[in-house]
Design a protein around this nucleic acid. Structure first.
Lengths: 218, 218
DNA sequence: TAGATTGTTAATCGATTAACAATC
DNA sequence: TAGATTGTTAATCGATTAACAATC
């Protein structure tokens, strides 16, 4: 069996955007699409689009382009969106409880099967049909249900502790929203979504832009 | 006046992580810190840390390192976290309404001053002391209050329309959570947080990893 | 002074973009 | 056939990492 070469992160981030466009095209009955069409809608280079698509293992036809339906299928398979992946969510605060009801997750093949919290006040509450359980059941339930993805929406000071419980239960990928650097074994994949990083970018870009605009007014 | 050279995105994403560590150090009474200490806690290269810090305009002392309090101040000023930035939020669904109450935003200098929705059923509701207004008031209120940041948490099919209302009202940076490529004038900064991109990464990495592990078992 | 750490210049690496031959 | 578009090899670009002189 061949080792799967890691796909560049930028590619993995772009592929869902292609899907978005392809779904629209399919709905309007378009059957073939060129890399240039996709590139233009996203403001990208067409070579980049072709290289990304190539990685998913589909071949286009010179002069014609790619078959829309086949391309959708190829990308979805590559991203494993066709198979639902179960996930445990820990931290039923306002962010966490919002995620429980966020219907788009299912669209992307992510299914939250259970939610947990440390806070007695939250345990027993139900959001969108999912009951919040005591976090002391996390590890056991994770291994019994063979869940491999954990969504971490607890406050920073509990994040490391909870991550370790997740790993003990057999979690292999953690989607971390806590503003903390998790220390995990190297076979565990951590995807950090630090909202502070985005806010940094927005606020700094605005600052940079302000001066540039004043400069233009001279 | 000098034009502000755009800071590399990777740097802007790392700086908040340094702050997190520096705050912890300050709490435990540490006064000086070396680039290596910061680098180690985050699994980074110390040169990278020094270069990032240099961009914020502070100087360290050979043999000693950086003064923790000064460094915190320098990074916060650079990221403009000391000044509160007002933001309008449009789309009071489960994600949007969660953000209204998400206390960390204030910590990062982002203050949601008003929330809007198209849906009559949501208009008038109140979340964490903020009332949801009719989106037809968005543009007018934005320009009267001189708000420059918009948070977009509407469904994909309304996103472009709402983005245009934001821009009409004077919004200059849009934090977009809708799974859509926004078409905006080039002086408008769009920060995309497409949750689908993260899920792609997680699901694909897990797939890549599965095969690698099976390989190891041989 | 000697050693540790900074700041800076040079080398490397990975991803993007350009050039172009292959082909429907 | 001619033209458009793919797939691939080479060049460029930006960010990371390595090397090292300056200095407290």
């Amino acid at each position: 069996m061949e080792t799967l070469k890691p796909t560049p992160s930028p590619t993995l981030k772009r592929l869902p955007k292609y899907l978005e466009i392809l779904h629209n095209l399919r709905e309007t009955g378009v059957e073939e699409v060129s890399s240039m069409t996709i590139a233009k809608s996203l403001g990208l280079d067409s070579v980049q689009v072709r290289k990304d698509i190539e990685l998913t293992g589909i071949l286009g036809k010179p002069k014609i382009g790619y078959n829309v339906v086949s391309l959708i299928h190829s990308i979805r398979t590559f991203l494993n969106w066709d198979n639902m992946s179960d996930a445990m969510l820990v931290g039923a605060g306002n962010l966490g409880s919002a995620f429980i009801g966020y219907s788009n997750f299912k669209k992307y093949g992510l299914n939250i099967v259970a939610a947990f919290d440390i806070d007695e006040a939250k345990i027993g509450k139900e959001y969108y049909g999912i009951q919040v359980l005591n976090v002391n059941k996390l590890s056991d339930l994770t291994s019994r249900m063979k869940v491999h993805i954990g969504i971490l929406t607890v406050p920073g000071d509990k994040a490391q502790e909870v991550a370790e419980m997740m790993i003990e239960g057999g979690i292999r990928a953690i989607w971390n929203f806590a503003p903390v650097q998790l220390k995990v074994p190297e076979n565990i994949y951590v995807e950090n979504t630090h909202l502070s990083s985005y806010i940094s970018q927005i606020k700094r870009r605005l600052k940079e832009n302000i001066y540039n605009e004043e400069l233009l007014l001279k």
